[in-house]
């Protein structure tokens, strides 16, 4: 209870503090450069030049400390030793390149990058196209969208139960093994069989991300001008032709946005791997490997170097996003 009280207090202090800051700083600005008197126009201009920065000050400070500074400090740390005390040059990076587990993580991340965005977007597109045409579409959408609200850890529990293994001859309680056995297979310990297990972990993320893709693509599909579809129908196009040749090309931009957004999520994937296999049996990925070196390895140099690699992989998408955003603003 104490704790909840302190949480409520923090909300009060945080919100109240913000409001007080904004109010007082604006008041102060109006006092220093009053919009009256002899040099009124000079004062107004001055106040208008300063005011935006007053409005943005708390945000800029927080972002600078929590996002910009860590970027540079991580680069610095990645050239230091485990305790962050001695300069070791590129040792962390050369260790990384030779490390088998890092290579495995890179290989898996590449696999994830290919499989997850592709399947999520494809399923999302199918789900959007299908649910837009049926009466109970909203309900269907809500059901497919629901995993978005479930934590990665919760999703891991859900799927680990699906993948559960019982020895042959006993009743299978995992759905996958039950189906596999029904079709004549011998029950497998899925999460320990290499390569297959990575794909089974990807299924979890695809399951979560498909709803996101569906919602956005459905919005885009509805935005397609009706005339184009009607014209195609009059020309005798089949429903499949309409979908692939008329609709999909028109929402291509949105498909790419969805694809890149999911790509970012994939690059940061961590919880699923940590809770389901903890990177054992050939399932390691960069996000979890970095965490491993941070917590278990207690090596800020190597962990930072891995984080930098993740950042480098994100960088192209970041630049592409910024260029797109700037194009829109113009």
């Amino acid at each position: 209870m104490d704790q909840l009280f302190s949480a409520v207090m923090t909300i009060g202090i945080g919100v109240g503090g913000c409001l007080t800051y904004f109010f007082l700083s604006n008041l102060l600005l109006d006092r220093i450069y009053p919009a009256t008197g002899a040099n009124i126009s000079f004062n107004i201009n001055r106040a208008n030049a300063i005011r935006p920065w007053l409005f943005m000050f708390p945000a800029i400070i927080l972002l600078a400390i929590y996002l910009v500074y860590p970027l540079f400090w991580s680069i610095y740390l990645s050239f230091m030793d485990a305790a962050g005390e001695k300069f070791v040059g590129g040792a962390n990076y050369s260790w990384m390149l030779a490390d088998a587990k890092f290579q495995e993580s890179m290989r898996n991340n590449v696999l994830w990058l290919i499989v997850v965005p592709a399947f999520s977007t494809a399923f999302g597109l199918i789900a959007a196209a299908v649910t837009d045409r049926i009466k109970w579409g909203n309900l269907a959408k809500a059901m497919i969208f629901m995993p978005m609200a479930i934590s990665f850890v919760g999703a891991s529990v859900i799927w680990k139960f699906v993948y559960d293994f019982r020895p042959e001859g006993t009743a299978q309680i995992g759905l996958l093994n039950a189906i596999y056995e029904y079709f004549g297979g011998v029950p497998q310990t899925w999460l320990t069989s290499e390569i297959v297990n990575s794909f089974l972990l990807m299924v979890v993320l695809i399951w979560i991300q498909t709803g996101f893709a569906m919602v956005i693509l459905s919005g885009a599909l509805r935005g397609i001008p009706e005339e184009t579809v009607e014209a195609a129908i009059l020309d005798g196009a089949s429903p499949l032709q309409i979908f692939f040749k008329i609709k999909v090309p028109q929402i291509w931009g949105t498909i790419i946005v969805v694809w890149t957004t999911i790509t970012i999520t994939v690059l940061k994937v961590f919880d699923i791997v940590l809770t389901m296999t903890n990177g054992q049996w050939g399932t390691q990925v960069l996000g979890n490997y970095m965490f491993d070196w941070l917590v278990r390895g207690q090596d800020s140099g190597r962990a930072s170097a891995i984080a930098i690699v993740i950042m480098l992989l994100v960088l192209p998408i970041m630049i592409w996003n910024i260029r797109n955003a700037r194009k829109e603003m113009r």
């Binding site: 208008n48 030049a49 005011r51 935006p52 920065w53 409005f55 943005m56 972002l63 929590y66 996002l67 500074y69 860590p70 970027l71 400090w73 991580s74 740390l77 962050g84 970012i264 690059l267 940061k268 961590f270 960069l286 996000g287 970095m290 965490f291 941070l294 800020s300 962990a303 930072s304 891995i306 984080a307 930098i308 993740i310 950042m311 994100v314 998408i317 970041m318 996003n321 910024i322 955003a325 700037r326 603003m329």
Partner: peptide
């Protein structure tokens, strides 16, 4: 509000949207 550097700040915000959390962990913990 009109002020110099607005476009640059906006670009920064868009860029920060995708900064991986992993990058911030160690420096912030320290």
């Amino acid at each position: 509000m009109e002020f110099p550097g607005r476009a640059l700040l906006l670009a920064c915000v868009v860029g920060m949207l995708v900064v991986p959390l992993q990058l911030a962990l160690i420096p912030l913990l320290q």
